[in-house]
Design a protein around this nucleic acid. Sequence first.
DNA 1: TCTTTCTATACGGTAAATGCATAGATCTTT
DNA 2: AAAGATCTATGCATTTACCGTATAGAAAGA
Lengths: 296, 296
Amino acid sequence: MDVDTRALRYFIELAEQLNFTRASERLFVSQPVLSRRIRRLEEDLRTPLFERTSRQVLLTTAGEAFLPLARQLIADWQTAQRTARLVAAVTARVLRVGFEASGAGSLATQAYAEFRRLHPDFSVQPKRFEWGGEIAALHDGLVDVAFVWLPADTTGLHTEIVAIEQRMVGMAAGHRLAGCETISILDLSDEPLVWTRRAPKHWVDWWAVNPRPDGREPIWGPENDNVEEMLEHVASGSAVCIGPESIGRHYGRPDLAWRPVHDIAPLRIALCWPLSRTDQPVAAFGAVVRGLADRT
Amino acid sequence: MDVDTRALRYFIELAEQLNFTRASERLFVSQPVLSRRIRRLEEDLRTPLFERTSRQVLLTTAGEAFLPLARQLIADWQTAQRTARLVAAVTARVLRVGFEASGAGSLATQAYAEFRRLHPDFSVQPKRFEWGGEIAALHDGLVDVAFVWLPADTTGLHTEIVAIEQRMVGMAAGHRLAGCETISILDLSDEPLVWTRRAPKHWVDWWAVNPRPDGREPIWGPENDNVEEMLEHVASGSAVCIGPESIGRHYGRPDLAWRPVHDIAPLRIALCWPLSRTDQPVAAFGAVVRGLADRT
DNA sequence: TCTTTCTATACGGTAAATGCATAGATCTTT
DNA sequence: AAAGATCTATGCATTTACCGTATAGAAAGA
């Protein structure tokens, strides 16, 4: 008999929530879909996994026994996935480097060139991800190393800060604040700020400087999944954004103005890779980046 | 990302055959279906698993690394399935007993009664399977013990012969041989014999007595999946069948005649359970059956 | 050049999964 | 005791995905 790992994921979520409605929301499917999928899993196993009443849902003993096995299967599947990708990259002698938006700016560009010079038999493949996607990509084995914008959840990852960038505010060219040389975060109290659902809440809060020094919460503007979308919102005047210096340099749009925000912490950019990766190319790229970072 | 275990099974088969057409036949799907499924798996993994030319198919290094992991996932899924079913049966205090057709005849019936008497807190659930299905059911955890008609592949199973039954030939009531008291296997040379695709070849050959003492092969008649289908063929006169004595007794159709075949080996019936099952109810049922078997 | 032997693609028909609306069941509240 | 709140299950219409047949296309061998 066959299963979809999706069925296992649904089962695990329901076993944790013990509530079809809540679990279905967290799985981004409708409640009837979850009901039917669980029922089909039970039919396939020929064993009820949950005892349901209209008031509560409980795991059966079979369900309890099945839960850790299902978790292990999901974990093993992810390992298998990661392994296949890793082996493919190693065989092709490719180093896949993840980043978001402007990544580590010119540091990354220099690092690619230097790495290629030192290791001409390897090719470098920069891979752009949406907000926060590099971390997931590292865990899924889609990239070997990544430039990560902190703060981020780097558990299980080797993390090494390699660059610091001042944060700037980006706004439409004709914005009332575009005339100022430099800007205080307090000047932005009344400006709607772009945000994203993709990254964890504390990442969003850090970028938005929430709460502000005066204790207030920023005004949340339109949401977006990546730089280009963000810049469209900003250029159209519906919000402002905060980003590192290199965004302004990499996305040099004439309809945008970038000004430094002098009174907030700068962005720390880390080079990360999975702790399990101790192989030569990854270490070599780390050394190259470290060398370049030390020089500045 | 999600997978279906089916995709993994397809991958494993293709990795073993290294030929889409051949693998698709062994998987009972059309060749384009296999092509698409493999391609989708590769797309999901973002990694080619096979190098194909119009002349040969080879595993990539990623495919080679993925193969043992896929095998392990399939094995672990089967274990998870088995565990869920086992726990459910233990919790419900049910002993599930597999058999095919007439199983172990009256021995089974007596054993159920005796087991229920000794262990009134347990219930017994006889489960009928199609030809050869009890073995698979034991491995899949669908039953706890089974009465198995030998010969059969009982690797991984505790096997204990508990009954011997003479084999009889079953035929339509008006058959030319129905007048004989007893029959020789050589009398059946010209009689088409029912057979099945469900059981392994050597099981079918043993039942059909192939080759016959004179070295000839029997005439193969219609195929079937279970007793009822078999008996329909026989009653309609399109073939004869060979079965144990208890089939004649359990399926007492007036349109059938059963006569002993005196010159072939009798059927040995074994009680089997997985070697991993050393728990009380299984052992207790074994003891009950052993006691009854010794008495006869 | 013409087979032969593979895998990949196009296409039409069928089965399955999805979301919405709602029934049905069981507590809680008034 | 009746009404409300809160769940899961079911019916239905729509979209999506999947399968098999037929066939194209590529590459090696005669």
